[in-house]
């Protein structure tokens, strides 16, 4: 049986994450070769078009954009942490709004 090596996330200054529009993905795997962090792999299930689609392990993502740049179908959006951490004051009063502004 094949064992899959899972990379443990390194301590990085910049972290990234990708969002994949799995219904439009055709599973061509070009992003897979473009990703140096091995953060992407093909799913076992299929999407509405019958393609296996890409899924991401965002813990490994650096937000380098390579996968999105080469994606022919423009299904990948990339997000990255701001290199400089902004200290944010969270108080019990503003916690809800602060988290919302970060997430959305």
């Amino acid at each position: 049986m094949d064992t899959i090596k899972i990379k443990t996330p390194k301590e990085r200054k910049v972290k990234g994450k990708v969002e994949i529009n799995i219904q439009k993905c055709k599973g061509c795997e070009l992003c897979l070769t473009a990703c140096k962090e091995n953060a992407l792999k093909l799913s076992d299930s299929i999407n509405i078009k019958g393609y296996r689609y890409m899924i991401a392990n965002n813990d490994l993502c650096t937000g380098c954009v390579n996968c999105a740049i080469i994606c022919p179908d423009a299904v990948i959006s990339v997000f990255r942490t701001h290199p400089k951490k902004k200290p944010v004051d969270i108080t019990p009063e503003n916690i809800k709004d602060t988290i919302k502004s970060i997430v959305i």
Partner: peptide, 25 residues
Amino acid sequence: LPETTVTASCGAECAIETYEEVYRK
């Protein structure tokens, strides 16, 4: 919240990593 989205180290002041979009269609 997704784990990777917010890393908050709590103290008197919280440092939060904000994600910005760097690539989209």
